Simulated assay, not measured.
Amino acid sequence: MHKGILLSLLPAMMLQVAHADVRHESFPTGLQGVWAPNAESCQSDSTRITINEKTVQAPKVACAVDYVVERAVPNGTDYSGRGSCSNRSNPDEKSFMNMIIQLHANGQASIGMNFDSMAEYQHCASGQ
């Protein structure tokens, strides 16, 4: 009897494990590099985002990464970088970072500081 109950609960327990969040100390290697809205923007500081292991450089902010949460979703994997930012034109102006990255096929991703500000980006080639 007890064995049957345990076996019936096993699929539900496995499903919860499969959807668990994984916390990282930094951005995974596959997310690191330069991201831009299109290939022409890879050289433009005004539109690109540079993600390193523990920092994010965006047009208006420079951010220090405290941790990154990886979450399995039906369409793949989402990442959420958490940390603190400084305004690039006024370093004394601080803000909280919750940068969301939803990976897509072909080296593209939706990136934003919240779900309402998501925009399409592509991973620029090395050296750009």
Results as ranks from 00 to 15, higher is better:
85 C>L: 02
111 I>N: 03
50 T>K: 08
70 E>L: 01
22 V>C: 05
109 A>C: 02
108 Q>F: 02
104 H>L: 06
106 N>L: 02
104 H>Q: 12
41 S>L: 03
81 G>E: 00
8 S>A: 15
10 L>S: 15
21 D>H: 07
42 C>H: 02
30 G>T: 11
83 G>I: 03
35 W>H: 05
16 Q>E: 06
37 P>M: 01
90 N>L: 06
25 E>D: 14
1 M>F: 12
17 V>F: 09
28 P>D: 01
17 V>Q: 13
104 H>P: 00
73 V>R: 07
18 A>I: 06
118 M>C: 04
13 M>T: 14
24 H>E: 05
127 G>K: 09
8 S>P: 13
52 N>L: 10
19 H>C: 04
125 A>T: 14
62 A>V: 14
101 I>V: 14
23 R>V: 15
39 A>H: 09
105 A>D: 10
35 W>I: 02
23 R>E: 09
52 N>Y: 08
75 N>G: 01
121 Y>Q: 05
62 A>D: 13
112 G>T: 04
64 A>I: 12
95 S>H: 06
52 N>K: 14
33 G>V: 06
84 S>Q: 12
4 G>L: 11
107 G>R: 02
63 C>W: 10
118 M>T: 12
49 I>A: 01
99 M>L: 15
36 A>T: 10
40 E>D: 09
89 S>G: 01
49 I>T: 13
87 N>I: 01
59 P>H: 07
42 C>S: 05
27 F>W: 15
19 H>L: 11
20 A>Y: 08
42 C>M: 05
83 G>E: 03
85 C>N: 03
81 G>S: 09
11 P>L: 01
22 V>F: 07
93 E>Y: 06
46 S>T: 11
127 G>H: 03
104 H>S: 05
123 H>M: 03
21 D>I: 00
39 A>V: 10
110 S>P: 02
113 M>C: 00
56 V>W: 05
16 Q>I: 10
66 D>G: 11
21 D>V: 10
39 A>C: 01
72 A>I: 11
26 S>T: 10
41 S>M: 04
62 A>T: 15
85 C>S: 03
64 A>S: 14
38 N>V: 00
1 M>Q: 14
49 I>F: 03
75 N>K: 12
25 E>M: 07
17 V>N: 11
120 E>H: 11
25 E>N: 12
18 A>L: 06
42 C>K: 09
115 F>P: 12
32 Q>H: 11
11 P>Y: 09
74 P>R: 08
31 L>A: 02
49 I>C: 00
72 A>H: 14
108 Q>E: 08
90 N>A: 13
